[in-house]
Simulated scan of single mutants.
Amino acid sequence: MTNQPLSSNNPSVDLEYRRRKSAEEMRYQVISFTLMIFLTLIAFASVAMKGFTAWFTIPFILLLAAVQVVFQLFYFMHMSHKGHEAPTLFLFSGVFVGFLAILTFLTIIWW
C-alpha cells in the first residue's frame, strides 16, 4: 500500500478514504474478536475434556491467554498503528523484565 496524503483538498476523496480505512479497521476488529471467542472456547474445551492432565491444560490455557493479550493490544488498543512504537517498546520491555524477574525467583527457589 502506498503512502497517501491525509488531505487531498478534495472532500469527497478524503471522505471515501476515511470510510475505506474505517471499514478495514472494523473488519480487523471483528476477525480478532471472533478469534478470541474461538480461543476461549478451546480453553473451556481443554478443561472440560477428561483426557488432558493439569500439566498440559495449565500451560495451554496460559498460551491461549498470551495470544489473546496480543490480539487485544494490537487490534483493540490500536498499537499496530503508526506513532505507537515507543509505547509498544516500553510495554514489551516491561513484560520482558517481569518475565526475567519471575524466572529469577523461580530459579532461586527451586535450585
Rank of each mutant, 00 (worst) to 15 (best):
M1H: 07
M1K: 05
M1I: 15
T2K: 09
N3K: 10
Q4W: 03
Q4M: 11
Q4T: 13
Q4P: 14
L6V: 07
L6Y: 10
S7E: 06
S8M: 15
S8P: 02
N9L: 12
N9H: 15
P11I: 13
P11V: 08
S12Q: 11
S12I: 09
V13H: 04
V13M: 14
V13L: 12
V13S: 07
D14Q: 01
L15V: 01
E16K: 02
Y17E: 06
Y17N: 13
Y17W: 01
Y17K: 12
R18F: 00
R18Q: 01
R18S: 00
R19D: 11
R19A: 15
R19I: 02
R20M: 06
R20Q: 15
S22Y: 12
A23K: 07
E24D: 08
E25H: 13
E25L: 07
E25S: 13
M26E: 08
M26T: 03
R27V: 12
R27C: 09
Y28W: 08
Y28H: 14
Q29K: 14
V30K: 13
I31L: 15
I31D: 07
T34H: 00
T34P: 00
T34C: 10
L35S: 05
L35E: 11
L35R: 08
M36A: 05
I37E: 04
L39V: 01
T40Q: 07
T40W: 14
I42E: 11
I42G: 11
A43L: 01
F44A: 14
A45F: 03
V47A: 08
A48P: 02
M49D: 12
K50E: 12
K50R: 12
G51Y: 04
G51H: 05
G51S: 10
G51N: 05
F52A: 03
T53I: 00
F56A: 07
T57I: 08
I58N: 02
I58Y: 08
I58T: 04
I58F: 08
P59I: 13
L63K: 04
L63H: 02
A65I: 10
A65G: 06
A66Q: 02
V67Y: 13
V69R: 11
V70R: 01
V70W: 10
F71L: 15
F71S: 06
Q72A: 11
L73K: 02
L73C: 03
L73A: 02
Y75I: 13
Y75L: 01
F76C: 05
M77F: 10
H78D: 03
M79R: 05
S80Q: 06
K82L: 15
G83H: 10
H84C: 06
P87C: 06
P87E: 03
L89S: 04
F90H: 02
L91P: 07
F92V: 03
F92G: 00
G94I: 00
V95C: 09
V95N: 07
V95H: 11
F96N: 06
F96A: 15
F96P: 04
F96C: 13
V97H: 09
V97P: 04
G98Q: 07
F99W: 01
L100S: 05
L100N: 11
A101N: 08
A101H: 04
A101D: 02
A101F: 14
I102P: 00
L103I: 01
L103H: 01
L103R: 06
F105W: 06
L106G: 12
L106N: 10
L106E: 13
L106Y: 05
L106M: 07
T107L: 05
T107V: 04
I108E: 09
I109V: 03
I109M: 04
W110L: 03
